[in-house]
Design a protein around this nucleic acid. Structure first.
Lengths: 189, 189
DNA sequence: CACATGATGTTAGTCACTAACATGACGTGC
DNA sequence: GCACGTCATGTTAGTGACTAACATCATGTG
């Protein structure tokens, strides 16, 4: 039972993705996207706050906060965030590969989109940091841990979107692995 | 002998900073900034590509690339970037404390400005990663190292701008310190 | 003083985004 | 089935960032 709202929104998003990919983000007006979806430009803005938002649609934040809270407090903040992201990635429903690729490629190739993506990233960062702060981690340390992990993750994403060949999952684990503490010689887990 | 161009640019920047701080970024039009500096809005855009650019003015990138290249190749990419940033920070001429504070506070408190700041950050990230790639580091690893360090640094900056009391330098070293490898038990330097 | 050059002003336009009000589709109570 | 309310949408008019084309004014040079 997709409601009318959901259908319109999906139509807008899909029209936007296709037009932007074909002709470039800057060469397509919101007016055109709306027309392609069969609605007026006002309807576009009722569904998306900005032109960029039709491409950047990530409602994952709450999941991530909980994932951080689920980590053992004995670990360093950085390590808690790192594991939370790895865990959350594994648990997420893998979105359609092709479409994700198109979206990330768009973002990787356009300054304005990248900027907005970073802005979203920052919201996520705040959520992660908040979860750490609740657990007693000082604010600066919490934000730094979140910032470092998301910086790494974003780098992996953009690198993939810019033309990397492997799977996205592999890149993410590899990126976050780079932030892992080196294994102790004792073999302690 | 400051050229006319330089004087106009400085006037615009200072007018922008003052007006934005007084009344908020969104409540001041470019027109008003230009008027306060005694020029027309076209002149504003000849000096700054966007409204945000009058606040975000960081020409540090080239220095950072060289700082990375100066690090011993034996270190991990992450560690090379980390040390390069610490080194570069120490070598930079400390800019006027008050003005920097005002700028960072503006950025920390405004979504659009933060987004643009991240966009700049990405350029820096690319410069750092490039320096690593030249040294033989794979692209993904290089971008991740740069992303993580700059993510941490940005978090420290924004945290400071949002109302932290200590010195900025201390926060930066503390933030980057969080990414340092743990000291080995052997006491090896 | 004629001249070239570069910074600036003027004007008019595009486009993202917003506000106010009108219309149209849909289900609910009766 | 019909009045009614609600919610998605359309229409219109506006603001403000940013651009392009052309005019002007300052500056230094011969």
């Amino acid at each position: 039972m997709t409601s009318r709202t959901e259908r319109t929104r999906a139509a807008l998003q899909s029209a936007a993705l296709q037009l932007f990919t074909e002709r470039g983000f800057d060469e397509v007006t919101v007016e055109e996207v709306a027309a392609a979806a069969g609605v007026s430009h006002m309807t576009f803005f009722r569904h998306f706050p900005t032109k960029e938002a039709a491409v950047l649609d990530d409602p994952y934040d709450p999941v991530l906060g909980d994932a951080v809270r689920a980590q053992p407090a004995a670990l360093s903040p950085l390590e808690r965030v790192r594991r939370a992201l790895l865990m959350a990635w594994g648990a997420l429903p893998e979105p359609g590969e092709g479409e994700t690729r198109a979206r990330v490629a768009l973002v990787a190739g356009h300054d304005g989109l990248r900027a907005k993506a970073w802005a979203n990233n920052q919201r996520t960062q705040d959520v992660l940091a908040e979860a750490l702060v609740e657990g007693g981690v000082p604010s600066l340390e919490a934000h730094v841990a979140a910032g470092a992990c998301l910086g790494a993750l974003m780098a992996a994403l953009l690198d993939w979107g810019a033309g990397g060949e492997g799977g996205l999952g592999d890149r993410i684990s590899s990126a976050l692995g780079q932030l892992a503490p080196p294994p102790t010689a004792e073999g302690g887990a």
